[in-house]
Structures are given as structure tokens and as C-alpha cells.
């Protein structure tokens, strides 16, 4: 679903299956997890059919990934420069010498100051933001087609968050690497991604171009998510909407629409049949029987 050079955001509450989706793309699901249904296609091939060696070549070379917690994602006993170099040498795309020479420019690219000295440092000598930059440098060192960033800014300070997002945007533009950004933070999506997928309980409930989704969300879940962001232009009296309840237990999902126990717009049908993902506008699709345009018909437009 990701096109070449695209930026896609996957949004949802924690525990809704975003990270698992991302890990599945690299087949990194910890035991005993398995991909039970669905396929992951990369350049017209099913990733599940890859042999061990193919899988190894694909990881970090075609698709690379950066993780949520930069504090624990780098190996504490190896030098940062070495960890970046290692990613390059693993795929024989660069020989030892070229890989060595590429480390410093890569660090420079992710805007780490004094990259030459920093390459010799160990992770504990880096700040959180710098570690995430180093992770990005590592991820991009093989010039992959796709970079998956799983909550890359959640563990960081707000100011650092903005810098990292900006960095990802610039790198996407300059290097043409497609970026999939997984987050629960809609503001982050808005500032980086051209397209959004909203997930709920492991399912896609809505997808479409970012602007369109923000302007006219069709799924009640997306709508509620947008309502729960504080807005600078809202008056003081507007209360932030919260979504009551918790995401469903996926081992024992509710019948019908998975969102119905928490949905304020549900109709009878919702608890009986699960709605399909259907086109609701240009390039926009939603999984709902009611759709916001009907739910709010007559009422004031949301935003």
C-alpha cells in the first residue's frame, strides 16, 4: 500500500496493532506470534515466502526500521559508528572501506554535530535525540526503499520530536525513501505524512490523503481522535472529547463493528454485521455503516 517515495502515517491508540503490523513487515514478530492472515507484499513478492537468507537480505536493505525507544535500541557495548557500518557491511552493498567512509557523512546527514568524533562514541554518550538520529542514519545507510518508523518520537522531548520529524521529512525528500510513520499522535502525522491509515483493533478503519481525513473524517473513530486533540483556535468552553472505554480484547472481539461498544453513533446493525472498508470519497475509504457525513448531517460541521 506504500508507494515509492511516499510518506504514510499509521495512526491508532496503543495496543491496536500498529507496531505488530510494522514488525510483521520485517517478520520480526516474537514467538509465538504468527501472521495468520493477510500478506505482506514487497515489490510483487510475498515476504512470508522469503527464505532465511532472502529475509536477511531484505531486512535493513530493502526495508529498515527504527524503533520507539532509542535509549534501548542501540547496543550499549558497541561504538555508534561501528553499529552503522555494520548495517552496511551486512548486505555486501559496500565493502569494508567504503562502509567506513560512509559512516561520518551518514551521521552528518542526520545532523549530528561533530560526526567524526561522535562516530567513536558509545550510545551512553549520546542523548536520546542523538540516538534516534543515529538509528535513522543506520536505517538509511543502505538506502532502503522503505523506512518504517515506529513511534520514533514518543520517548523524546517535544522540541526534539519536532526536529526528528523535520529530519525525516527532509530525508524523505532528499533521498526518496518512502517513510511509514507509526504513531498515536495525529499532529505528528499532519506534519509529515501525505497519506494516513487509521487503525482500530488491528483493522484499518479509515484511509486517505491526510488533508482530506483531517477535514472530513468519515469513521467515527477517526472523528473522535480528531476531537480529542486540543486546538489553539477553540474557545475555552469547548470540552475535549475523550473516547470512553478501552480497545477491545483481540482474542475475544465484540461481534459486528469492533468499535461499536465505544461508538456514539452506532445503529442496530453495528453490533451484528461488520462493515466493509468502502470508498467514501476520492481516495478515501472508511469501515462504517453510518459514516460521519450522515451522522452529522444537519448538525454543525465538525471543523
Amino acid at each position: 500500500m506504500v508507494n515509492k517515495g511516499e510518506t504514510l502515517g499509521i495512526v491508532g491508540e496503543s495496543g491496536c496493532g500498529k507496531s505488530v503490523t510494522a514488525l510483521s513487515v520485517l517478520r520480526l514478530i516474537p514467538e509465538p506470534g504468527r501472521i495468520v492472515s493477510g500478506h505482506i507484499w514487497f515489490k510483487d513478492r510475498d515476504v512470508a515466502s522469503y527464505s532465511r537468507e532472502e529475509l536477511r537480505e531484505y531486512r535493513g536493505n530493502d526495508v529498515s526500521m527504527i524503533f520507539q525507544d532509542p535509549m534501548t535500541s542501540l547496543n550499549p557495548v558497541l561504538r555508534v559508528g561501528f553499529q552503522i557500518k555494520e548495517a552496511m557491511v551486512a548486505h555486501e552493498r559496500f565493502d569494508n572501506k567504503t562502509a567506513d567512509e560512509r559512516v561520518v557523512p551518514m551521521l552528518q546527514k542526520v545532523r549530528i554535530s561533530d560526526p567524526k568524533e561522535r562516530a567513536k562514541n558509545y550510545p551512553h554518550q549520546f542523548s536520546g535525540g542523538m540516538r534516534q538520529r543515529a538509528m535513522i542514519a543506520m536505517g538509511l545507510s543502505n538506502e532502503p526503499d522503505l523506512l518504517i518508523a515506529d513511534e520514533p518520537t514518543t520517548a523524546l522531548d517535544v522540541t526534539v520530536q519536532a526536529q526528528i520529524i523535520e529530519l525525516l521529512r527532509d530525508l524523505n525528500r532528499d533521498m526518496g525513501t518512502a517513510v511509514v510513520l507509526i504513531t498515536h499522535n495525529l499532529a505528528v502525522v499532519a506534519s509529515l505524512c501525505t497519506r494516513v491509515i487509521v487503525m482500530y483493533a488491528g483493522r484499518i478503519v479509515e484511509s486517505g490523503p491526510t488533508r482530506q481525513i483531517f477535514n472530513s473524517p468519515q469513521h467515527p473513530y477517526t472523528w473522535s481522535l480528531l476531537q480529542s486533540i486540543p486546538r489553539i483556535d477553540s474557545t475555552q468552553h469547548d470540552k475535549l472529547l475523550t473516547i470512553a472505554g478501552l480497545p477491545p480484547d483481540l482474542s475475544n472481539p465484540p461481534p459486528g463493528c469492533l468499535f461499536h461498544p465505544r461508538c456514539r453513533f452506532r445503529v442496530d446493525r453495528c453490533s451484528k454485521e461488520e462493515p466493509p472498508l468502502e470508498e467514501v470519497g476520492p481516495e478515501q475509504a472508511a469501515r462504517c455503516w453510518v459514516l460521519m457525513k450522515n451522522a452529522l448531517a444537519g448538525a454543525e460541521p465538525v471543523r
Binding site: L26, R56, S64, F67, T72, S73, L74, P76, A87, A90
Partner: peptide
């Protein structure tokens, strides 16, 4: 089970290198 070992796998390193080096 540590994150950095997952990173090592995600980089596409050979299993021998992941186990011994990381």
C-alpha cells in the same frame, strides 16, 4: 529479548553475528 538485539535482526545481520557480537 532486548531492543538492541531486535535492532540487530532488523538490520539484516547474520544470526551468528547477532548472537555473538550483539
Amino acid at each position: 529479548r532486548q531492543d538492541y538485539v531486535r535492532t540487530a535482526w532488523a538490520k539484516g545481520l547474520r544470526s551468528r553475528i547477532v548472537v555473538i557480537r550483539h
